[in-house]
Design a protein around this nucleic acid. Structure first.
Length: 516
RNA sequence: GGCCCUGUCGUCUAGUGGCCUAGGACACAGCCCUUUCACGGCUGCGACACGGGUUCGAAUCCCGUCAGGGUCACCA
């Protein structure tokens, strides 16, 4: 395959939809695989719905994911402008040209008449196929009417088949007789999507249109438009839609609110969002890219997951770094049935990427969450930073998302311990434990150093000496010093805390337990 | 309803006529490792929508049925 020019054409809606990203990613991968340009074209012709400030989140999202466009907003390109709202004249001219050539004609019927036609067809249980009375007008007369403000319809040639050789779905055919003449230009001169997209794809020399399968039906009229325009056709590839988790329904841009369950909400609140903030942002739900960014997912993980959704490298690869993906991507291996979005698997993939991330990158990623939690200032001491590094290292693979630092790091980093009462009762107040703790605190005070290995030896020796199960002390210490039962190894925790702080926390716990 | 698309474990997938008593991954369950949790290791659970053909042989090809989805605008 030669060089590819592929495009993604989002509407500026204020957020980047997961399904859209997957489609954009396939376009981008195709370009990276075969060489060429990935074009971002902004579909902002619907002025009521599209606000200019709604574009930025989309661009930010793509940049965060590492999906860079070669032509489009902010980067320009030779075949711009890349905003459809700035290309309106071109659509108009193209439509006029078609009218002059007799390939399109003015629609003479009023909206009311059209509605009546449609309803009559519906009542008669017949498919509604519009053929306008203006079809046979002489070109001069037709153009005059169009210039006077009549909408323009494309003439669909009857008595033949429209054939698409789709790169993913194979051969798809439509009977032209079942296709009504579509409106391509409104009375006020604004083009309709099906026409604008064709004019632009031709003008921008798009070679491959990779888009969601929901556009498959549209392709028939677009094919007719390409023909009428007398320009070369791109190749088409219709990728299956992305479904809701555990569902056969499309992951929809609408009704995304239902994904914000109480569980999701509490997760968002745990990273510092208030209920009001969540309610005010329509991009904070699991169907958007912003949501995963907000929770501290690694973009590499999201890209891997999305790339693997509907496409596979072979019979066993799951973790496919971007270089491997771009070197091997092909439309042939894109599935032709819909795929359900699986948040659990995404979480796992994100964790796999986190495992391989260098420590300094983890520190960097975790900082915003600590700052928002109010326990990290702008000028923390080197010692404090070193402590954070040790916390992250000790957390190990438990840290799958950057926001997980709140769960595993806070109990160590926070100066005061928030005790989980159930755990406290089970592991500290328990029979005999306070006594062991009190005794061991003195041992701790006498230790030559506070390395994890030293601590482990001392603890085991002490328990052996006294003849009790070391687990009693391990669990007691953990809860005394962090308040909770899960997290890094207890020796690591004590070592990070240091001698003074460890002893202070254990004594506090003993005081709380009613023993000093 | 018309047209179009799709149907392999709960989910993502491998499979292009014999390598398939259908392989891998996530999730789930159990065991081991670790005196927590996680990681890791092992084991288990679990699918070719159904019915007809074609063929020596079908998850794979054909037909039908059923099911799901998409689309039918002077929206994108």
């Amino acid at each position: 395959m030669g060089p590819v020019r592929a495009r993604f054409a989002p509407s500026p809606t204020g957020y980047l939809h997961i399904g859209g990203v997957r489609t954009a990613l396939f376009n981008w991968l195709l370009v990276k695989r075969y060489g060429g340009q990935f074009i971002l074209r902004i579909d902002d012709t619907d002025s009521e719905r599209n606000k200019p400030e709604a574009l930025q989140p989309i661009l930010d999202g793509f940049r965060w994911l590492g999906i860079q466009w070669d032509e489009g907003p902010e980067v320009g390109g030779p075949l711009g402008p890349y905003f459809q709202s700035q290309r309106l004249e071109g659509y108009k001219e193209a439509a006029y040209k078609l009218v002059q050539e007799g390939k399109a004609y003015p629609c003479l019927l009023s909206p009311e008449e059209l509605k009546a036609e449609r309803e009559a067809a519906e009542k008669a249980k017949k498919p509604y196929i519009h053929r306008g009375p203006g079809r046979n007008l002489a070109p001069e007369e037709a153009l005059k009417l169009v210039l006077e403000g009549k909408p323009v319809r494309l003439k669909v040639t009857e008595g033949r088949k429209i054939v698409l050789e789709d790169l993913i779905r194979g051969r798809v055919e439509w009977d032209a007789d079942l296709l009504g003449d579509p409106v391509i230009l409104r009375g006020d001169g604004r083009a309709l999507y099906n026409f604008a997209t064709v004019v632009d794809d031709a003008a921008m020399q798009i070679t491959h249109v990779v888009r969601a399968a929901e556009h498959l039906s549209n392709t028939a009229v677009q094919l007719v438009a390409f023909e009428a325009l007398g320009v070369g056709q791109p190749r088409f590839a219709h990728v299956p839609v992305v479904n809701e988790p555990n569902s056969k329904k499309k992951l929809s841009k609408r009704d995304m609110a239902k994904f914000v369950t109480t569980e999701i909400k509490s997760k968002l609140m745990s990273i510092g969002h208030t209920a009001e903030q969540i309610a005010a942002r329509d991009d904070l739900n699991p169907a958007t890219v912003a949501f995963y960014r907000e929770l501290g997912y690694l973009p590499e993980g999201l890209v891997n997951y999305l790339g693997r959704l509907g496409w596979s490298l072979d019979d066993h690869s799951e973790i496919i770094p971007i270089d491997l993906m771009t070197a091997n991507f092909s439309l042939e291996r894109v599935n032709d049935s819909p795929a359900s979005f699986d948040p659990d698997k995404l979480y796992w993939v994100a964790g796999e990427y986190m495992k391989t991330l260098p420590l300094e990158k983890k520190v960097e990623g975790v900082l915003p969450f600590l700052k928002r939690a109010g326990i990290w200032g702008e000028n923390e001491s080197p010692a404090r930073l070193e402590q954070l590094r040790r916390v992250i290292t000790a957390s190990g693979d438990r840290l799958k998302l950057f926001s997980d630092i709140l769960q595993y790091g806070l109990p160590i980093l926070l100066p005061s311990v928030a005790y989980d009462e159930k755990s406290f009762a089970k592991r500290v107040t328990k029979e005999g434990v306070p006594g062991h703790l009190a005794e061991f605190v003195d041992k701790l005070a006498a230790l030559p150093d506070f390395e994890a290995a030293t601590l482990e030896n001392a603890l085991k020796a002490h328990a052996n000496d006294k003849g009790f199960n070391p687990a009693l002390l391990i669990h007691g210490l953990r809860v005394s010093t962090t308040g909770i039962e899960v997290g890094a190894g207890v020796y690591d925790i004590l070592s990070i805390l240091g001698k003074d702080e460890s002893i202070r926390r254990v004594r506090n716990a003993l005081a709380k337990a009613g023993l000093v």
